[in-house]
Amino acid sequence: MTTLQVVAPTLEVAVSVALLSFVVVVAVLTAVVRDVLTAVVVFAAYSLGLAILWVLFHAPDVGLTEAAVGAGVTTALFLLAISQTVRPAGGRTLVDPRTVKPSSVVVALGVTVGLLLTVPALPPVGAADTPAFGPVSDFYLADAADRGVDNAVTAVLVVYRGFDTFGEIAVVFAAAVAVLAALGRETLA
């Protein structure tokens, strides 16, 4: 019984729809634009749109991460990588459709349709019987406040799921070690 409820056209809904449309448009543009620099900038706009969406969905921690990592640092690293490439002069703005491999289109469409097929299996928005509203989250919210950690996200990351976070920081550390080892230079400057 996952019937779509008619949502009231509030300002929040309007902004959500606008942002979601924007994100879809820039996602498609990232794929079809011909100039790589344009693609990188459009991809940053995609991340920024997602970041605002996260804030709108009351997930400011994720939004902050998306804005800083997705729109900021990733863009900078991409810019570095393409700064050594050659930019074609003039020409068309979008990719010539005749140069696109049909198999790529089939794979992209297959993945998209496959993902969309799983959407009806999701619980409706705000459903009371989802795990998010179970006793576990109540415990986390109450216990984190008792311990003096007001930000429940930080509490989950460090206090309750510390082992996972330990692994994550090990991965970040390994990234630096791998880059220094792969590029064969131990000095930075």
Binding site: T65, A68, G148, N151, V153
Partner: peptide
């Protein structure tokens, strides 16, 4: 990070 939005990852990235 323990009192408001953010934390080590976000602050470090910024």
């Amino acid at each position: 990070g323990t009192a408001s939005v953010g934390g080590g990852f976000q602050g470090g990235v910024v």
